[in-house]
Write a protein that binds this DNA or RNA. Sequence first.
DNA 1: GCGAAGGGGTTTTACGTATAACTACCGCCG
DNA 2: CGGCGGTAGTTATACGTAAAACCCCTTCGC
Lengths: 365, 365
Amino acid sequence: MPTPAHPARTAPTSRDVARAAGVSQATVSLVLGDKWQGRVSPRTAALVRGAADDLGYRPNQAARSLRLGNTRTALLVVPALTNEFFARVYTGAAATAAEHGFGVVLYPSPDGTGPARDPFASARTALDGVIASSMATHALGALRGTGLPLVMLDSDPTDTHDPADTTGPDADGTDATATHATGRHAAAHVNLAVADGMHQVAHHLLGLGHRRFLHLASAVDTWTFHARARALAETLPPGTTTLHTVHSALDVHSARTALENALTTGTDRPTAVICDDDVLAAGACKALRRLGLRVPDDISVTGFDDLALATAVEPELTTVRLPAEQVGRSGMAALLAVLEGHTPDNTELPVELVTRGSTAAPAKP
Amino acid sequence: MPTPAHPARTAPTSRDVARAAGVSQATVSLVLGDKWQGRVSPRTAALVRGAADDLGYRPNQAARSLRLGNTRTALLVVPALTNEFFARVYTGAAATAAEHGFGVVLYPSPDGTGPARDPFASARTALDGVIASSMATHALGALRGTGLPLVMLDSDPTDTHDPADTTGPDADGTDATATHATGRHAAAHVNLAVADGMHQVAHHLLGLGHRRFLHLASAVDTWTFHARARALAETLPPGTTTLHTVHSALDVHSARTALENALTTGTDRPTAVICDDDVLAAGACKALRRLGLRVPDDISVTGFDDLALATAVEPELTTVRLPAEQVGRSGMAALLAVLEGHTPDNTELPVELVTRGSTAAPAKP
DNA sequence: GCGAAGGGGTTTTACGTATAACTACCGCCG
DNA sequence: CGGCGGTAGTTATACGTAAAACCCCTTCGC
């Protein structure tokens, strides 16, 4: 066996590398930090590098962060990872982060809606910035007041006071400081063109000949869903079309019962159900089947998001494809820009209608 | 406006708290670390606490980690978060971690399969331990050699050499050290009773009268899928039953084409398709519908995992419910135990057959 | 022949925390 | 009255890194 000289294995430090290379610790730091232009000879630099990966040296991140005052880590605040959309947002954000030597740590709501005292306690590592979905209502409150750079996803772009538009000025003098604080972290916005998406859905259905619509909407009280509802209402010509709205939680079962209730108590049946989400659309399809209606022959259904679910169900869903990974990438890019001192523009990412088997011309009466 | 005495806002340190409370920094550390029993008077302790949250003091995690030599952070290595199962594993792991003041950072394969040089580069923060799914084949190689405590999820429990059972002893003397190294991080295992799950599926179908089976298996070459195949083969009585196997990637489209190919070229049609995953089952249902076969009247289908998808499709899938969150919780608990010096037992979590509409007695010929 | 300019490093310091080691004070017992 | 133990702190140090400040030697311009 090899000499067990040092049985207690501890990670090699830059000083160990220095000793091995016969130079000072400072030199190691310069070389490995690529700051040795004209300060260290190429020979010595090579020597240091050799010693470093002989020893398998990895800089201690804690020490690095302490010295540099930054952590190269961002927090992504989302409602729940089991929602495929947000899993994809994370994937995109993490990819862009990795390209810049950043990491991403998550703060999803544990149970999907809990209050969860402190998002920053769960993120053991300190943070350089935050990317937050407006749907992550469980954490928006705690976000204010932290002077951290903030990027909001799919939230009201006219709202610069960002986290929580609650309450006016407080009683005591904290008002001025609060204004100052929110002013400091120049919040950037990354939004999806959800209004345009709803436009496209509506025009698609109008073009097929539909006139009576039901909007199966998310019960989550968030800008993105308000924007969809508003866009839908504005697109449908009044007088010649009717639009009813039903709200539901974002799961298949809730959607099914919501739609069953709406249709059994309903007046004249809609010919198309427009859903805020593919999950809702899947629930809608189940409800319709239960009621003996065929999709799309008797009634059309549209979704939103283009999740994997959209092509897993039968018939496949006509839906609006959202560039989820791109949301994450753009969000992280905006955050990185803020961290470099720039003030990025708000971005709005395009969406695309995907026509599949769940929509067709309405049956002749 | 309030006096802008200190325009450059920097986070308060323990020294600031000390100054505000009129004590030394060490005292602050003692009080806030709850180590002041008999060392600091209750009056002073209260004073310190008051000053601390007046200033909104939060200990600098980087400094803390540097001093303590640990980060209270674990890495969870999974194939992809868009797989609902692993999103739920994360949720469970993060919940248990939070209860113990730990954080969890993720290392999913960016594109679902990439090689991705270094999992630890992406995790900017240093790590105390690793929890890895055996399906995260992209990272298993890099995991070996890091002396980090390791918990394996759903991998061969008899394999203690854990990451990568590749290669025998190497050429040079690294063999001894390698053995020593793997010996050091006493890998714990958290497994699912997938074999029992397959037993239950098989007995359910046998009980309904099925005799000709097709196993739509995952093409991923991993212990968990081998275990399922083996369990299935062992459960079906030879002679009176037939079992064919088809492999597919883990997405709806691949599953659909795989099954279509199998059934169109096939000999005598199976009466039940047993799938390794709900996603595969959804694909199978689509294939069968395309071939004009009704589920479950003409042919039964079973899934595995009990994802949300299982109740979103029509008919709802008979499947095996896996306690995904519990996998994460148990994995994190095992890791925490290792970090406290214990050597936890391998755990096997029970699974449960959920009978739904995709299975029925086979049609009389 | 001498000051200036660099090349090639080294020494030193700071980051914020946790804790070991030390000090000062007081009451009390022998 | 000297010492001892307990109380209530303080001072000093270490963690590993990055970088500012310094230092010495050689070369070069004039």
